[in-house]
Design a protein around this nucleic acid. Sequence first.
DNA 1: ATCCATGCAAACCCTTTGCAGTCCA
DNA 2: TGGACTGCAAAGGGTTTGCATGGAT
Lengths: 155, 155
Amino acid sequence: MITAAVKHTGHRHPRPRSAAIVDDIIAQLSQQGYRDTEPRRLVINAAAAQRRPFTAEELCAALPCVGRATVYRGLRLLVETEQVCRVLLEDRELRYQLSHQGHHHHLLCAACGASADLANCDVDALLQEAAATAGFQMSGHWLEIYGRCADCAVV
Amino acid sequence: MITAAVKHTGHRHPRPRSAAIVDDIIAQLSQQGYRDTEPRRLVINAAAAQRRPFTAEELCAALPCVGRATVYRGLRLLVETEQVCRVLLEDRELRYQLSHQGHHHHLLCAACGASADLANCDVDALLQEAAATAGFQMSGHWLEIYGRCADCAVV
DNA sequence: ATCCATGCAAACCCTTTGCAGTCCA
DNA sequence: TGGACTGCAAAGGGTTTGCATGGAT
């Protein structure tokens, strides 16, 4: 049980971090002409509440009041607007997670399901170069890295 | 249909290379306790006849006399025994192609659908290192490279 | 004679779609 | 108000599975 708030601001409960995220995403969507709807917010909110890459089905289960099609459509919209990115597990199961800024790859833990971002990595440049050596013009790539995170590492 | 065993390598020859490939794969499967059956050979033969990464459905269509389940089961067996590897297109369509020796990645042409192998590339080492920096034990990865092959390159 | 492999069809899973009603902008 | 958005259910595709039969070893 949480005791009284430290400050007497009238806000006993600090605004959840996810609320700001939802507002931010909704704002970006609005900028692109998409409407601000209740189901949409619920989807974004549920997505933001996940602490691991999640499946569309998990979101549906978490949102019994939102139609399955709406969840899928919302998820697709979020991917298209790059607010959410897709994550592919080793068994080809498709999951999602909120995008973080910039291009990056995912380090996926097989033990706990956690996902860490691999940034500041010149993999892309290396691939581009290697592809060029084979006379290939690289336009994109898909890369997922599997293993165990620091917490689940086998000693 | 004839599946004469022509055991030779590295020579140009008018006969389909598939015959030798089928025998070789069947031999490896036998070594692992799998049986030499007609439908199995047909699946391997059809796979070897493809010049581009192919889908399971394409194989089914090419083998109207073989049950769909048999094609899928055969394909799965070939993937498990590493005779065939899976290829993931940008739209997440799953395709297959005969494995070539050793670990490698695929350069997939968006224009003609061709697949080239990217070998002798130290991507793996780079990833391993980058992952380790994040305290991550890499055990595997999935990497596909998309673009245009030399023939389809945009000038 | 085993028991793996096959074929068929139904089941399955995940995702999309048609359509009528709803609700932002 | 009009065009987006939603919900439901049904369709869709891609793959797997149950089960009885067939075939390799």
